[in-house]
């Protein structure tokens, strides 16, 4: 098993790492039993992801995929962001080892849950 340069780069210097103090939506994916837990915070303004942050407990590839997905989603409209798939994340990272594909699944799930969370909160507000 070997990680790409891009994975290592995002693992050592993750982008958008941290948390938002008053996020519009939060999504959590993973399970500590499996060793990984991912949390994505989004700040939405005019249907656009204006800011995004993540916190991840997981392997190097889990950290890199969460970093990459925040980079891909930042500045996108919600419907654009919803279209991001795990393959987009893996491709942007110049590939993931086969046994690590589920980490990109997690990133994808966390982002989509954050968007859902935002939408359901907004529905209630209306």
């Amino acid at each position: 098993m070997k990680y790409s340069k891009k994975v290592i780069e995002h693992f050592t210097r993750p982008r958008n790492q941290g948390r938002l103090s008053s996020p519009s939506g939060v999504g959590i994916a993973g399970n500590p039993i499996c060793g990984d837990l991912m949390k994505i915070y989004i700040k939405v303004k005019k249907d656009r992801i204006e800011d995004i942050k993540f916190e991840t407990l997981g392997c190097a590839s889990a950290i890199a995929t969460s970093s990459m997905i925040t980079q891909l989603a930042k500045g996108k409209t919600l419907s654009e962001a919803e279209k991001i798939t795990r393959n987009d994340v893996a491709d942007a990272l110049e590939g993931l080892p086969m046994i690590k594909m589920h980490c990109s699944n997690l990133a994808d799930e966390a982002l989509h849950k954050a968007i859902e969370n935002y939408k359901s909160k907004n529905k209630k507000a209306q």
């Binding site: 290592i8 693992f11 990984d36 997981g58 889990a62």
Partner: peptide, 27 residues
């Protein structure tokens, strides 16, 4: 609050070779 595989990779990048019982290191 640390996962073993990421710890292993980070140590490896510093030239230090260890091992972990984390599942993420084996698949």
């Amino acid at each position: 609050d640390v996962e073993g595989e990421s710890l292993l990779i980070a140590l490896d990048m510093e030239g230090i070779a260890c091992s972990t019982g984390s599942a993420c290191s084996t698949g």
